[in-house]
Write a protein that binds this DNA or RNA. Structure first.
Length: 227
DNA sequence: CGAATTTGACCGGCGC
DNA sequence: GCGCCGGTCAAATTCG
């Protein structure tokens, strides 16, 4: 029976992988522009605090390209537009203990903090991190508490990891197996695979902590046992 | 003692 | 040109 459950979980993971691939979650370049103010001169509200209403106690992932709730200026990070065209933005929401002031989001990667700022429209400080798994990795991360719910950490990721290092994921070396002869393409595939694995882990983690999902799973297992 | 974090200073973009 | 603001730097401090 345990084997069956394991198989079911594998199937579930395959479905998740397929879903992520088909919906291009996190893998589409942002088309964000850097307009900060509306035409009438009123300030555009920073959406860092806007969280999905159905958030549980784990991680929710939103794609900046498809999620219109994310303001342009939040995505811009004051970067040149040319740079933005080739930069991928990902935002995740993590529920943490409100008393925890560390602003640490456990996503499997290792981050080095290089700055912290209090922004105008959110009293909670915003922390700036760089990926420390590889010295040349361009990925950056911003973490700030939600303005609406201080128990929710909003992590915004910019860029893609240019390395295959990931503490929780063993990646295939496509270059050595001969499956990929173009080095650039290979790096892209490797990176996308790594990001997919990360997304899967986060989604599975989210499901695992969802009481409704757990109840459904328990019910399904129970039916299996009684069959 | 080296690595990681903190924090004030500095820089560049943008609006007025 | 000036001031505001977000992002980054780097010296000081803390931690393991």
């Amino acid at each position: 029976m345990l084997i069956e459950i394991a198989n079911k979980l594998n199937t579930m993971q395959n479905h998740l992988t397929k879903f992520i691939s088909e919906n291009q979650v996190n893998l589409s370049p942002t088309t964000a522009t850097s307009k900060k103010r509306k035409a009438n001169g009123q300030e555009v509200k920073d959406n860092t605090g806007c969280i999905p209403s159905n958030i549980s106690n784990s991680v929710i992932i939103s794609n900046s390209m498809e999620n219109s709730s994310i303001s342009d200026h939040e995505n811009s990070w004051k970067k040149p537009r040319e740079y933005l065209k080739s930069t991928k933005i990902l935002r995740t929401y993590s529920r943490v203990d409100p008393s925890d002031t560390s602003l640490q989001v456990k996503d499997g990667y290792q981050w080095r903090k290089y700055g912290q700022k209090v922004t105008k429209d959110n009293p909670s400080p915003r922390a700036y991190f760089r990926c420390s798994l590889a010295p040349s990795c361009p990925v950056k991360k911003k973490v700030q508490r939600s303005i609406e719910d201080k128990s929710v950490l909003v992590a915004t990721y910019e860029g893609e990891h240019n390395h295959s290092l990931h503490p929780n994921v063993t990646l295939l070396d496509l270059t050595q197996t001969g499956l990929c002869d173009d080095e650039k393409q290979c790096n892209l595939k490797t990176d996308q695979y790594g990001m997919q694995q990360l997304l899967i882990e986060q989604m599975v983690s989210s499901l695992a902590q969802d009481p409704v999902f757990k109840a459904s799973l328990a019910s399904a297992i129970s039916r299996r046992v009684h069959d």
